[in-house]
Design a protein around this nucleic acid. Sequence first.
DNA 1: GCGACAG
DNA 2: ATCTTGTCGC
Length: 237
Amino acid sequence: MELRNEHQWPVEKFEAIELQKEFAQHVQILPNFDDVTLIAAVDTAYGRNADIIYASAVIYTFPEIDEVEKRFHYAEVKFPYTPGLLYFREGPAILAALEKLETTPDLIIVNGHGIADYNRCGLASMVGIAFDIPTIGCARKLIAGNHREITPQKGSSQPLFLKDREVGLAYRTKDNVKPLFISPGHRCDIKFAKEMVVQNLRGYRMPEPLRFAHQAANKYKRHIEKKYQNKTIYIKE
DNA sequence: GCGACAG
DNA sequence: ATCTTGTCGC
């Protein structure tokens, strides 16, 4: 895949916020009627000291969810974990893994929030803008917004509001299991995001592509750590 | 001002 | 996110 919006990686928080607000201007929330055949999912894993980040980018067919292509990338972590600025910590590795994909998916599911973010531009939105491709944010915890209580039954959901705006939803993917927070990232809307996530559930809390991408990132991490045990990992630019 | 705070 | 085994519950 090819980046559509290149930029420097900020070192200071205020610079990151400036870039995030600029990207937020480009976020498109609109109905998506495209036929979805290929779905990509990205996720990351960290080394023990949280100094190295490992990212996976995997493409699956939909609705079969058969693996089509799988790429990875690891890098030194250079930005501190800061709620609201996750993109600046994980973005370098995630974008690099996605750039290695030879196939272009119809949409990308990201482990993190889309517009359910204080600046309406979470990790999923930032990734979507970077490649100008439809993205969906899927998070296990809420960072911004509120919603009414949802029942314990699978399928129960409530809209997620942030400053009077509906930005996504809380969705129960399994009975008696904590809900998932879904929000559009870029070039799609809440309805599309919800439908896609629901149609990709296969009995677990997380949609299958993301669940697999998560496992893939961890396997990749173990592989690299084993390969370089006792040695100093050399990371090229 | 205080609390909350994706991975 | 990561450090970690068993264990309670559907």
